[in-house]
């Protein structure tokens, strides 16, 4: 794959504790020797800007804090993302539309990359703080390894 064809986008707000884990993960991945060329993107809380960040990619791997009702720090690889996003229309009503809304709109306009994968991590605390909680920071090496393997499997 060419560099722009495979992208990893971390999402979240580093001022909001564990919500920023996607951003920290991108920083960690920058220090890792990835098996092939990948574009690493700090997507912040850019909302619909995500649509433009995905444009032209063959595959996008997202990393985001996701409330899944699992123990804090749990990692889940989700590749059937679109059918799961039932809350999307409601979320689109927010300014800072998150991933769900951006994907819902992208799907309606048939402008999404063919492959989308989300590495979701259950946050412990989403509240004003510049630090991740220990439950989440302790799983970062495992998260980075899972993403590295995902990249290795991409052809």
């Amino acid at each position: 794959m060419t560099p722009s064809a495979l992208r990893i986008i971390g999402i979240g707000n580093p001022l909001m504790g564990d919500d920023g884990l996607g951003i920290t993960a991108i920083e960690r991945l920058r220090a890792v020797d990835l098996p092939q060329a990948v574009e690493l993107i700090d997507g912040g809380t850019g909302g619909l800007t995500l649509l433009h960040l995905m444009e032209g990619a063959t595959k996008v791997i997202f990393i985001d804090a996701v409330v899944m009702q699992l123990p804090p720090g749990s990692i889940r690889r989700i590749d059937d993302l679109l059918p799961r996003l039932t809350a999307a229309p409601e979320q689109l009503s927010l300014h800072e539309t998150g991933l769900a809304a951006a994907l819902a709109l992208g799907e309606s306009l048939e402008m999404l990359p063919p492959q989308l994968v989300l590495f979701g991590v259950e946050p412990q605390e989403v509240a004003p703080s510049l630090e991740l909680t220990p439950a989440v920071s302790s799983i970062l090496p495992e998260l980075v390894e899972q993403v590295r393997r995902e990249v290795a499997s991409c052809r």
Partner: peptide, 14 residues
């Protein structure tokens, strides 16, 4: 109105 500028947690029933 921009009530807050904070977070955008995704919720998925897993």
């Amino acid at each position: 109105p921009c009530i807050s500028c904070s977070t955008h947690l995704l919720k998925i029933d897993f």
